[in-house]
């Protein structure tokens, strides 16, 4: 009984919805709402990555590049091309998918570390372009993002953004769960377990991997767009190598391949720096140490370890 509840798709969504509903009640100030909104946004990006890593077994060390593309789309679209911000937002997500398709086609032939370095290179090149093409992107100092209006209603304020980002996360989570349960999701996971076996039973391995890469890029693009719109200002730092690493760390710390894991991982790495400020100059060292400790002792991630803990005690 308990096992069924813990693992069911609907339960995951209900639990997420419950947490989302409870946070504003408990948050003492809108600062906490902002942190929570960031958790939802990065969870969305981590969700995409977990589809790639958990379902398809491929890693990307350059995913912040897509975060950057999505973010700069909503900044550059209205400012330089006169496009509507909302339209730019969707165009940005679509652009991420397109770029992922173009880049992924050759890259995904590579395996393991070769794939890691190729995606890492891709991310660095995106960051470098955002840095260098100052005429379009505003350069290292960043660029202002136009406020977004929906049906004459200006989206601003911490509370509004909290619900917008939470809504986006819910949609993203529902989609991810459906992908996981769908036949293609199952084949993806077969890929993760054994590519040879999957090929043997007639799965078009390359096409599935590419599809997972494109989907994960769109997730990151949407997250980047939301981040830019919420902050109203964006710098090339968004696409930095460190951010790519953070996204991967979120997935692994939470639990690769798990929707809740992506959210927990995002919460962990977003809230942690806020908590670590009391350590002042020791912050960096402790952050590095915590990442190491989690990777070494909880390689399956927080969520699956918790799940196992609960299931082991279930009657």
């Amino acid at each position: 009984m308990l096992a069924a509840v813990v693992t069911s798709r609907l339960a995951t969504l209900l639990f997420l919805a419950l947490v989302i509903a409870v946070v504003p009640v408990l948050a003492p100030s809108s600062f906490y709402l902002r942190v929570a909104s960031l958790v939802w946004i990065f969870a969305l990006a981590a969700l995409g990555l977990t589809i790639l890593m958990g379902y398809a077994g491929q890693v990307s060390l350059g995913h912040a590049g897509f975060l950057g593309i999505g973010a700069y789309a909503v900044a550059v679209g209205p400012a330089r091309l006169g496009l509507d911000p909302l339209l730019s937002f969707f165009l940005g997500a679509a652009l991420c998918g397109l770029v992922a398709y173009a880049v992924g086609k050759p890259i995904l032939r590579l395996k393991g570390y070769y794939l890691a370095i190729a995606t890492l290179g891709f991310g660095l090149i995106v960051a470098l372009v955002l840095h260098s093409e100052a005429a379009v992107t505003g350069g290292p100092d960043g660029i202002q993002v136009a406020r977004i209006t929906l049906f004459g209603w200006r989206i601003s304020g911490a509370t509004t953004w909290y619900w917008v980002t939470a809504g986006a996360l819910m949609i993203g989570a529902a989609l991810a769960l459906n992908i996981a349960a769908s036949p293609s999701g199952r084949t993806l996971r077969a890929l993760h377990d054994s590519e040879v076996a999957a090929t043997g039973v007639g799965v078009d391995v390359a096409a599935r991997k590419l599809a997972a890469f494109v989907v994960s890029a769109v997730y990151a693009g949407v997250a980047g767009g939301l981040l830019a719109l919420m902050n109203g200002f964006i710098t090339p730092e968004t696409a930095s190598f460190m951010h790519s690493i953070e996204l991967v760390a979120m997935v692994i710390i939470g639990g690769t391949g798990s929707v809740l894991g992506a959210v927990v991982g995002s919460a962990f790495l977003t809230v942690l720096p806020q908590a670590l400020t009391i350590l002042q100059e020791y912050e960096q060292a402790v952050l590095g140490l915590l990442i190491m400790v989690f990777m070494i002792f909880l390689p399956a991630g927080i969520v699956s370890s918790l799940k196992r803990f609960v299931l082991d005690r279930a009657p």
Binding site: V19, V271, I278
Partner: peptide, 24 residues
């Protein structure tokens, strides 16, 4: 006077929110 401040502690506690055990 930048050492331990209550708000930082609260932010730390915020991490536990996911487990729904918030404490101020």
């Amino acid at each position: 006077k930048t050492a331990v401040r209550p708000s930082a502690l609260r932010a730390g506690a915020f991490a536990a929110l996911v487990a729904a055990s918030f404490m101020a």
